[in-house]
Amino acid sequence: MSSEKQNTRAVADTVWLLLLGTAMAVNIWLIFGFAPLERTMGLMQKVFYFHVPAAWVSFLAFFVTFCGSITYLITKREGADRLAAASAGLGTVFCTMVLITGPLWAKPIWGIWWTWDARLTSTFVLWLLFLSYLILRSYLPATGTRRQTLSAVIGILGFLNVPIVYMSIRWWRTQHPQPVIAGGDDSGLAPDMLVTFFFSLFVFTLLYWVLLRLRLRQDVSERKLRALQRRETAR
């Protein structure tokens, strides 16, 4: 890679990081300084601005894994596989965040850490699915295209499972509240809360995007390093 190209990359990185940093600071102010306190839940409700965006990003990340997996199987382009794997890793991290903030919120509001409700359970299963994707991937041989193809198969099967797990909501009793945005008639957020929520959604998506870029770049560097090491040992 030419040094000029490297320079533009570095500039782009800085710009993204600055944008993300500013947005995150603004987000924190919006959540704690701007959005009104919820009447019954009080300060605990602030978890909402982290919990729901993290859930959204984890779904987005797994959807990217799904698309990357399909693209890889059709085009056999290595980039699609790297995108799928990087996104699965990030998705697992965000899903972990959902599973941690959920009980933290549930304990003071519902009085329990966890309940075997459909939405909680399906998020838990989603987390397990992509954890198993990552585990399996780490055990597949890195030589040839085997790891790429087989991970893609698991990525597709795993994602297809998500809506079916979710369908179980119909005949399973559910404790999780209906979605507050576009949920039922009596649900809804105060306008200031809505603004804060959407901004938080944007910030989390931005965070995912910046991390994804970094992860993919790290992959490229890693492969270059491996190639150099191989050349060194061959000499």
Binding site: V125, L128, L129, S132, Y133, I135, L136, I154, L157, G158, N161, I164, V165, M167, S168
Partner: peptide
């Protein structure tokens, strides 16, 4: 089982 069991939950 590690890969199969999460998938057969439904």
């Amino acid at each position: 089982p590690v890969v199969l069991f999460p998938m057969i939950v439904p």
